[in-house]
Design a protein around this nucleic acid. Structure first.
Length: 799
RNA sequence: GCCCGGGUGGCGGAAUGGUAGACGCGAUGGACUUAAAAUCCAUUGAGGAUAAAACCUCAUGCGAGUUCGAGUCUCGCCUCGGGCACCA
């Protein structure tokens, strides 16, 4: 008998798959399509570890399973190759980012191939190549022409170490997502994508998506919709008005002061001459503070009085106007009506500066200032004609009343900010814009794309875009008037590259279009998208935005609402010794060695067996041994069994039961229990089996263990690939259910287990259940009820 | 502070409200071997009881509740992990 030599088998079948083009995505002719996508990796120098494998194996299991259901599969792979890490690593190792990246990609490709996944390598993409980023730039132009890309001077999150601006999404806990440097504020003229225009749609569409609930919640919170009112407060003794946003108009009678953000331009106009020095000092001071400090928790309230007063529109009361850094310029109007009785922050501020605190909401309609600040809704008091109304009612009434005198309107605010895409770094796609003295800001002509990233350049960061140093790059002609012009020297955030790559996979070699509409319509949307939850508020939000925008611009029309990812699955992280696996922590397990020692199939199996795929799991160093032993067992059984003409009843029962279980488990992405039931099947199979029936078991283990399955399938006398076969259907009638174990309980406690026939009637079951053990447990007491669940339990309930 | 997700043997983990611990790792004992590895067989939640069994009790983070019956449902806590956070 042949020895189980997994490396030989792997090499043999990977070669066959490649030579026969088994994994080439073929056009769907009367076959449903299935687009199965992994989040394309950033090719780091460190290579893959077993944590990366997990998602790739799962997607491949599903892709192969779908293939066995007759679908045409698009299962591509590529590299998110632009970006800061490559640039930083390149600087460190004193190589060009391009050279560094290409080398890393080579290694990644080699490692990825070991998985034996059904990737269509002819569609591989690399986001740092001109033929790719040409279309990144093209998308920029489409957004620009549609008014969805714009430039403005704004304080941006600045990472002093990476020497670049960052999007809000890339600031984690006040630190740079990449290098953990404290992020500071810097005024720069930057490019933005108007993602806020899609805030409502991005939010509403979530309900239609088959995504994990927690991911949807993350996006919902990130978008941060809040509904309330925009109120106008007149500034006393002036013609000025200040608008404020509030969700608690019901507390308006309790608004005893107003606070403006120090950056609010109206501050200059209203400040009383007497207070000007103090106010200017405060503004200067806060300007230099970093956002980190400003947003620090438990921070003591600071602020100064402007000397001006506002008129509360509901009761015409004069209230003092202060400035304080706890009011943010970027949200609402940069001005807040302060209700110290019913807001924690306003309460702290009022206490510190001795401002009036009035209770206007009460849980029971009675005054009790000891409960302040009282933050819940309740019943209005001290609120004139609104007294006695519940908060919800008062909100509607008051807003309508004030609206009739033009002092209020309904308004919705979002926490989501526009997406800052400018990066003052080298390794990214140049922004296709030129600046001309005559015409100003001019987009590059589409026919002149791509704007090539110059290669011969000093790319070390100096706080300014490295591209500025390249005269050949900077100096150009204006596309409009032909006179001298200068190119934009910032590059695009790499999240722009990754926000559309799934579209390119549908037609990766197309030189004339991003993708032909035929190809887009054939393959989009992505049927299954697998990746980590860390992208919930970044990539997954950006990609949805770009898809929707292109869809609305009628540029790409693949789905009713432009949603790119129908189903999302968040793969759990792999932990080792209780910590997330990562190179920097030094707790990385290299898949290469495991593949070498135990085979690709065994590692695939263990990746799936380590735990439920949507949960983080601890890697057990010796866990893979169990899978390897199982594969040995399968091999032994397959090659040592003398196949018969027919199959024993018991085996048929096992086979059909297992088909059902494995099918259900794969459908639910529970590959761990699918493997468990396959193991269990082999623990119980006897030798009376036909080739044909045994083949069914090989078919159902093939998505997880494709190499060994192909080999055995061939040994069984099949001439075509197992993946050209069709997934078997469980024959329920073959599952033996003659005798079943019936649990016998007394008062809900297990006392005995009896073997009864499946179709036993209730009366006989009851009689059979009264065994000696059960009788002694009943102990002659009165039986007051008997619960009988056929096939499961019988419970004698005693008085 | 608010919003998610976890907590089950020595370990990873199974369990449509119905026999808790499937499947696997590890461990212990045995077989094979000159020996080891590999492989195979057996045992393996804790405690008590017994010559050995039968058997008994306790066990799914803690405490209540619903139910004939709760790891699973409800309420209140503890704890670990993640997200947001002066967002008006």
């Amino acid at each position: 008998m042949k020895k189980y030599e997994p490396a030989k088998i792997r090499d043999k079948w990977q070669k066959i798959w490649e030579e026969t083009g088994a994994h080439k995505a073929k056009e769907a002719k009367n076959r449903p399509k299935f687009y199965c996508l992994d989040m394309f990796p950033y090719p780091s120098g460190a290579g893959l570890h077993v944590g990366h494998w997990r998602g790739y194996v799962l997607s491949d299991v599903i892709a192969r399973y779908q293939k066995l259901h007759g679908k045409s599969i698009l299962h591509p792979m590529g590299y998110d190759a632009f970006g800061l890490p490559a640039e930083n690593a390149a600087i460190k190792s004193n190589r060009h980012p391009k050279e560094f990246t290409l080398k890393a990609i080579e290694r990644f490709r080699e490692q990825l191939k070991q998985i034996g996944a059904m990737y269509d390598w002819s569609r591989e993409i690399n986001s740092s190549e001109p033929q790719y980023y040409k279309w990144t730039q093209w998308i920029f132009l489409q957004l620009y022409n549609a008014g969805l890309a714009y430039r403005k001077k704004a304080p941006v999150n600045w990472c002093g170490s990476c020497q670049t601006g960052l999007a809000n999404e890339q600031v984690v806990g006040g630190e740079c997502e990449r290098c953990q440097t404290k992020v500071t504020k810097k005024e720069l003229t930057q490019w933005f994508f108007k993602i806020t225009k899609y805030a409502e749609k991005l939010l509403n569409n979530l309900t239609k998506l088959d995504w994990p609930e927690r991911t949807k919640i993350l996006q919902t919170n990130w978008i941060g919709k809040s509904e309330g009112a925009l109120l106008k407060f007149k500034v006393d003794q002036t013609d000025l008005e200040i608008e404020v946003f509030t969700t608690r108009i019901d507390t308006l009678f309790g608004s005893t002061f107003m606070v403006l953000a120090p950056e609010n331009k109206v501050v200059q106009a209203i400040t009383h001459p007497k207070y000007i020095d103090e106010v200017q000092n405060y503004i200067e001071k806060t300007k230099n503070e970093s956002d980190v400090y400003r947003e620090k928790e438990h921070r003591k309230k600071t602020g100064v009085f402007t000397g001006a007063y506002a008129i509360n529109p509901i009761n015409s009361k004069k209230i003092p106007i202060w400035i304080s850094d706890y009011v943010l310029m970027g949200y609402g109007t940069g001005a807040v009506m302060c209700v110290p009785g019913h807001d924690k922050r306003d309460f702290d501020f009022a206490k510190k500066f001795n401002l009036e605190i009035t209770q206007v909401i009460s849980p029971n309609g009675k005054k009790d200032e000891n409960i302040l600040p009282y933050l819940d809704n309740g019943v209005l008091i001290n609120s004139g004609k609104y007294n006695g109304l519940k908060s919800a009612v008062a909100k509607n009434t008051m807003i309508k009343d004030l609206n009739s005198v033009n002092s209020a309107e309904f308004q919705t605010n979002f926490r989501l900010r526009d997406w800052l895409i400018s990066r003052q770094r080298y390794w990214g796609a140049p922004i296709p814009i030129v600046y001309c003295d005559m015409c100003g800001e001019v987009p590059v002509d589409e026919k002149d794309l791509p704007v090539l990233l110059p290669e011969n350049i000093e790319f070390k960061p100096k706080g300014d875009s490295p591209l500025k140093q390249s005269k050949e790059f900077v100096n150009t002609k204006c596309p409009k008037c032909g006179t001298k012009a200068m190119r934009e020297t910032d590059t695009m955030d790499t999240f722009v590259d990754s926000s559309w790559y799934f579209l390119r996979f549908t037609d990766p070699q197309n030189l004339h279009e991003l993708s032909s509409s035929k190809n887009i319509n054939t393959w989009m949307p992505v049927d299954l998208y697998i990746g980590g939850i860390e992208h919930a508020t970044m990539h997954l939000l950006y990609a949805r935005f770009i898809s929707m925008a292109l869809h609305d611009l009628k540029i790409l029309g693949f789905d009713k609402d432009g949603e790119p990812f129908k189903k999302l699955f968040n793969i759990g992280l792999i932990y080792l010794h209780g910590a997330k696996m990562s190179k920097s922590k030094g707790n990385v397990i290299n898949p290469d060695e495991l593949v070498e020692k135990y085979s690709s199939d065994a590692l695939r199996g263990y990746e799936m067996f380590v735990g439920p795929n949507d949960q983080d799991s601890e890697w057990q160093v010796s866990g893979i041994v169990g899978i390897y032993r199982f594969l040995e067992k399968v091999w032994q059984y397959s090659l040592s069994t003398e196949f018969k003409n027919s199959t024993s009843r018991e085996n048929l029962s096992i086979i059909n039961f297992t088909i059902k279980k494995v099918t259900q488990d794969i459908e639910n992405f529970r590959i761990n229990t699918a493997i468990a039931s396959l193991m269990s099947a082999f623990n119980h199979l006897d030798n009376k089996i036909s080739k044909k029936d045994y083949g069914l078991i090989i078919q159902i283990l093939s998505p997880i263990f494709p190499h060994i399955a192909e080999e055995i399938w061939q040994e069984l006398g099949n001439h075509k690939s197992v993946f050209e076969s069709y997934w078997p259907v469980s024959d329920k009638s073959k599952v033996i259910l003659d005798n079943i174990n019936l649990a016998v309980q007394v008062n809900g406690k297990l006392k005995d287990i009896i073997l009864v026939t499946n179709n036993i009637d209730e009366e006989s079951a009851k009689n059979a259940a009264l065994t000696e053990k059960v009788k002694s447990a009943i102990n002659n007491k009165n039986i007051y009820n008997i619960i009988y669940i056929p096939g499961k339990i019988i419970n004698f309930v005693l008085k």
